[in-house]
Design a binder for these strands. Structure first.
Lengths: 361, 361
DNA sequence: CTTAGCACTCAGCATATGAGAGTGCTAACG
DNA sequence: CGTTAGCACTCTCATATGCTGAGTGCTAAG
């Protein structure tokens, strides 16, 4: 538990133990270690070092006289200081890019569709559970509202948001409203709200729409009253995309039914994912959260590698979830690259004029 | 395997075996049976009968000298001839109704949202996996198309279909199109296509839109060329809603990892669900498919209780999936009732004028 | 037709046993 | 002093063994 920095040997051993365990999922002993990686040291020496690492809280033994396995802290150390991100092969990149970009031909794929494809690729490639959140439009700037009459008192509200994001909601009124009036109301809303971030609108429509003389007061009231829902992110708590449940369930760490069921429950309820991914979308770049670092007990055996993607002010996030024993070095690269491509893809599909140059990091 | 009809005693015994097995998930023996249900027969007699049932292919022994369990055929017999559908309690009905109907207040919940709520209730109530398919708009009659310019060459296509179903797609053109022209094009499309079923439109837009003089030819071409996607059901292969994976994974029949993983894979790929539920939506009323009756090996340990829901010509389906050992008598009622309520809810939210009377079956 | 009795089968459980992997410790070594 | 060989010890895992209980099929008697 003392956090004196590690010696070079300790760093090496820790790194090897982690790698070996990630590979085999079986506790690694001193003898095995020297044999697998041809070390110029005797098992006894390794044992001593391992003992030190155990005292530092980086390794544990599942039971007396078994090999060691990394603790969350051990993985943390490995991730932060020891591992070298493994660059992606040309083929892997292509796989991601093809899946994300897809081909349309006249039809514009919306964010949901892009993300759906993305998680599939991400899940298959990582052999873990891939997750993504649809863009949070909160910080996006509102561009335009359009009101389309659908007959029978129903009105389609079409919101255009920065970078071509779109949101449609159907409202219902008891009485039909003439097209003229609809148009006027829309114009009014546009005049007063255009250019503001969605979030600000939510907070201040009431004031901004207080004294109005034109437009239909009924519709206006309806919109103002439902502003929380209308000027929000996507529908309900939806907007989560998954892929790869079988991958993760097949992992040996979920042989325990108990764990498995509770994990699936957590996934289905979506709260946890929303909290973890949603929270992270503030920060930039790839974030790794390991095992017990999670506040939620249900996923204390899991790690998450996630990254936000951004299109203008709008952002969402994506990542993979798996057992703590995962190939961090590879996953960091995969997730990072995928997030970039998604940003790019959504940006492009949004407005073609500004061609963002592809940066190959 | 001879299908001479069963004697009264055989029917009773089969029924009791099925019920007992459904309850316990442990093979039921002759002695247990007489004890549990106070039968006026000796175990030996039961044994003889059971033997007959085994020869008829309705029961099997997992191994010599274990009790019997029902085969798919046994369940089939039970479901078709022996069981009495268990009526729902007032409370259960209320639970379903509340979840499905929900409350809106100005905002119209679309089919996706209604079904999402529905499967949650259905999954929780059945303690199994609930599944639903969004409505297939194929047979729905097309009412109106509306083209809304989004700027930057993008056009929002709004399709109104019978009973208030809605479908929106974004198209993209290289050049901006004047509003005037958009309106003309929409009018043209409405004149020629309104009142036709979506399916017919898909098959015949090319002919119907051959000789036109007004409207923008570019947009028209785009729409005609993409008619397969535009005048179709919902987006991609989406439109499946789930709930209750933990329920089903906790079932003892999925203790086997192998099975469990393959089941989850099948669910995720959606094909099987689409085939089973989609296929069934033709027929009316509740359909039960049991174990090996399914063409797909992945779900040969599962049964599905499903029912279509209908709103005018438009229909979709919903149901529950679980191990063959499920409470058919209860589930039939649940699924049936849920389907009715969903039909009702979607119908109402579609057009309020025609109040369908609630029928309490 | 029904039932008592009996020999037989087999999963499940507990117990014992041995092998293998791994450890910590101590003492010797360069 | 860091490193290493040796050793006693521990603990899991796999295998073998025996026992029990639930259940069966068959036969003969009621």
């Amino acid at each position: 538990m003392t956090d004196r920095s590690l010696t070079e040997r300790e760093r090496t051993i820790l790194s090897l133990v982690v790698q070996s365990y990630i590979h085999d999922c079986s506790p690694v002993g001193s003898r095995t270690l020297v044999r697998r990686f041809v070390l110029d040291l005797s098992p006894a020496t390794i044992r001593n070092t391992m003992n030190d690492l155990e005292e530092a809280g980086l390794l544990v033994q599942p039971h007396t006289s078994a090999g060691r396995i990394p603790t969350s802290l051990g993985y943390r150390m490995y991730v932060d200081e020891l591992m070298a991100p493994r660059p992606l092969s040309r083929k892997e990149r292509a796989a991601i890019r093809d899946a994300v970009v897809g081909d349309q031909g006249g039809l514009v794929r919306d964010a949901a569709s892009v993300l759906d494809q993305t998680v599939r690729a991400l899940g298959d490639l990582s052999r873990l559970l891939a997750v993504s959140l649809e863009p949070r439009l909160d910080l996006g700037t509102f561009e335009k509202i359009e009101l389309v009459s659908l007959g029978a008192g129903k009105i389609l509200v079409v919101l255009t948001i920065e970078k071509g994001f779109l949101r449609t909601i159907v409202l219902e009124l008891e009485v039909a409203v003439p097209a003229e009036s609809l148009h006027e109301t829309a114009t009014l809303l546009n005049e007063r709200l255009s250019g503001l971030p969605m979030k600000i609108i939510r907070e201040s429509v009431h004031e901004r729409m207080r004294d109005v003389s034109i437009g239909d007061p009924k519709i206006l009231k309806l919109i103002v009253n439902n502003s929380e829902d209308i000027f929000s992110t996507s529908n309900e708590d939806e907007g989560i995309h998954y892929w790869g449940t079988p991958n993760i369930l097949a992992q040996p760490e979920f042989a325990d039914r108990e764990r498995m069921v509770s994990l699936m429950g957590a996934l289905e309820k979506k709260e946890i994912i929303l909290r973890v991914l949603g929270g992270q979308s503030q920060q930039d770049g790839v974030t790794i959260t390991i095992g017990e670092e999670h506040p939620d007990g249900e996923i204390e055996f899991c790690s998450i590698v996630a990254s936000p993607y951004r299109v203008g002010e709008v952002s969402g996030s994506l990542g993979v979830l798996g057992p703590t024993r995962m190939e961090y070095s590879k996953l960091v690269s995969i997730v990072d690259y995928t997030a970039r491509i998604v940003s790019e893809a959504l940006g492009e599909s949004a407005d073609d004029e500004e061609d963002q140059p592809e940066d190959d990091a």
